[in-house]
């Protein structure tokens, strides 16, 4: 059996032949036991694989995984937004930002006074974390695990700190 015949047999199994070629292969199979044996082997493999892919689970927790997706989206949004910003707008932004910040602070302060936000959670809501210049960090809170995670993303700096810090060897 040559290579073309073998591939034709496979196409017959996968229903990729024209009706005419299909008939030809059927006739051939009736007289060739080697062809029948090869077709049986291909069929066995296909049916064994069907619906029997091993189920693999994502090894990361749902919240952690999603927080990484969110962070990447934010990062890409920033990159896309950056060139569009006009210098005039940037200059205006300088004035708008402190005003907006002051307004937000006043609103938050008013909410604290009205006991809508407890002071204990205020810092957390406002994200009072600070990272060294060499690395960036992202924070997420998992209610289910009762855990706040701050993951330092700058690999080069984090690696340096970690390997030095742990001294595994």
């Amino acid at each position: 059996m040559n290579n073309d015949q073998q591939l034709k047999l496979q196409s017959y199994l996968d229903d990729e032949l024209s009706p005419r070629e299909n008939r030809q292969v059927t006739e051939w199979l009736a007289v060739d036991s080697d062809a029948r044996a090869l077709l049986a082997e291909l069929k066995n493999t296909t049916s064994a694989l069907s619906g029997n892919e091993l189920e693999v689970k994502l090894p990361e927790g749902r919240d952690f995984y999603f927080s990484k997706i969110q962070r990447q989206l934010e990062r890409e949004a920033k990159v896309q937004a950056a060139p569009v910003r006009e210098p005039v707008l940037a200059r205006l932004w300088k004035y708008v930002l402190p005003l907006a910040g002051t307004a937000a602070a006043v609103i938050v302060f008013a909410m604290v006074l009205q006991k809508q936000i407890s002071p204990a959670t205020l810092a957390y809501v406002a994200g009072e974390g600070e990272t060294s210049e060499e690395m960036s960090a992202y924070t997420y809170h998992s209610q289910a695990d009762g855990m706040t995670v701050v993951w330092l993303a700058d690999n080069s700096a984090a690696t340096e700190v970690s390997s030095e810090a742990i001294e595994i060897q």
């Binding site: 957390y124 009762g146 995670v149 701050v150 690696t159």
Partner: peptide, 13 residues
């Protein structure tokens, strides 16, 4: 805030 549970700070190595 202590009420929010444990704090984890880390990174890839």
């Amino acid at each position: 805030p202590l009420a929010s549970g444990m704090l984890v700070i880390g990174g890839d190595a």
